[in-house]
Design a protein around this nucleic acid. Structure first.
Lengths: 104, 104
DNA sequence: TCCCTATATAGTGATATAATTATATTCAGG
DNA sequence: CCTGAATATAATTATATCACTATATAGGGA
């Protein structure tokens, strides 16, 4: 291997790996996919309908994604609107869409 | 959201999420990055040198990646040569490289 | 203020993952 | 067949995550 090639520093890997790991969960990926498709902020009820699990469970996942910096939210009256704040994670959806298609 | 938009089926998410989750580990990402940069199969000793942890630990990670279908290996005499068998996972590296750059 | 709707948190037991150490296996050459 | 180099497995302890249920908070309108 060429000595000039630069690997991603371990420091960066240590920092970003947990974000990916925490996002790579079926329900959280569904939420991400839904928000990307929607193209605009969605409230919790809309997001809950896009999955088929209990609202409390969805709220838990939303919080995890918010804690990881993947989503942000903003209150509009009664409604809490969520949107994607770190598009880098959309690479995960791309990964899933191509998974199994290339080379397998 | 448009009704015509198709979300990734839960079945697919359930299947692929664990693969991503298992790959999104600092050392395993380093291995993936190294193998991509190398461009050709590498043996365990080479891979171990690209990290700075014990060989036994590297072997464990290689096995996990192999179990997930991310890598394959082939014996050449004394050496076990590993290579990437599912390039879809390289999206994770892309995700890391762009993480923090866009929108944060 | 009281109530209803929308959303968030707490608590729980089962299960899984992490990193490490010690040890085992496999193969080629002499 | 014995040895040493290369690689793999086992066993272990600490810690984290999963999915679920029950309950709590927060805001708007009557």
């Amino acid at each position: 291997m060429k000595k000039t090639t630069k690997l991603i520093p371990m420091e960066v890997l240590n920092q970003v790996a947990p974000v990916i790991r925490n996002t790579a969960h079926p329900l959280r990926l569904r939420i991400l996919d839904y928000l990307q498709c929607a193209g605009e902020p969605q409230n919790v009820n809309q997001i809950t309908e896009a999955t088929d699990v209990a609202q409390a469970f969805v709220s838990q996942q939303l919080r995890i994604l918010k804690d990881q910096g993947v989503l942000t939210c903003q209150r509009h009256g009664l409604f809490m609107m969520y949107e994607i704040s770190n598009p880098a994670l959309l690479h995960l959806l791309e990964c899933i869409r191509t998974h199994g298609k290339d080379c397998k």
